[in-house]
């Protein structure tokens, strides 16, 4: 009998507060969330509701005050910094609102950097394949300054996906894009999740991402209203 694989992300009882001049601000209050393989979960909520905090905790970049964070089969809630970095390298891909590409590297080298940072050998064929799938193969030798915002975000997706992550965390991936680029990225996200069996957790205000979501989660009062 085959064992059931652990979900890429499982959050249980997550609590997080921040000290503010006016007192303690409770951002996450016993939050539970599980994202399954190939599932796209869109996280929405007003500014300050804790979407980014949740992504940071899910990515092992921020410690929760209480609760458990499991990335596939690894519990990173109480892991050391080195173990959390290793778990990120094994299981995670990040896409940031502001892309954070290295201006000095070509599109293809930015993507290859994703492999280097994961301590994986730089497989140029794999890089070319990912660029092709994301529709930016013709831009491979271009520098970020020479491509559009949409192409930059595709490059950021390629960098996150080239290492075959189990879970993709994306923070406002369309906020810097025009509607045409947003449409293209949205379609791409759906296609990637399905064909590459990647779980995707997206924090966004953008309603144009809703149609591709398997699940819409609204963050309110530190909890998820499914």
């Amino acid at each position: 009998m085959n064992a059931v694989p652990a979900p890429p992300l499982h959050l249980c009882g997550i609590e997080k507060s921040f000290a503010e001049p006016s007192g303690t601000l409770r951002v996450l209050d016993g939050l539970d969330l599980t994202v399954q393989q190939s599932e796209i979960v869109v996280l929405q909520g007003p500014s300050g509701s804790g979407k980014t905090t949740l992504l940071q905790i899910a990515g092992g970049l921020l410690h929760a005050d209480a609760g458990t964070v499991r990335l596939c089969d690894t519990d990173i809630s109480s892991a050391s910094e080195a173990d959390r970095t290793a778990a990120r390298q094994r299981h995670l891909g990040f896409v940031f609102q502001h892309f954070h590409l290295l201006d000095a590297l070509t599109v293809e080298d930015n993507v290859a950097l994703g492999l280097r940072l994961k301590r994986q050998p730089v497989d140029r064929a794999r890089v070319a394949e990912v660029l092709d799938r994301l529709g930016i193969a013709s831009k491979a030798r271009k520098l970020p300054r020479d491509i559009s915002g949409g192409e930059k975000q595709r490059t950021a997706f390629a960098r996150a996906l080239v290492g075959r992550p189990d879970l993709l965390l994306a923070d406002e991936p369309t906020s810097q894009l025009d509607s045409h680029a947003t449409e293209a990225i949205t379609a791409l996200l759906a296609e990637i999740a399905r064909s590459w069996q990647v779980a995707v957790l997206v924090a966004t205000h953008d309603v144009r991402l809703h149609p591709i979501a398997n699940r819409l989660c609204r963050l309110s009062q530190g909890k998820i209203d499914a």
Binding site: L61, T85, G93, F94, F96, H98, H100, R119
Partner: peptide
Amino acid sequence: LSVFAAMKALGASTAD
């Protein structure tokens, strides 16, 4: 700094 932070998030160590 933000790019270096992104590199760290993607798996780079401070030593890298």
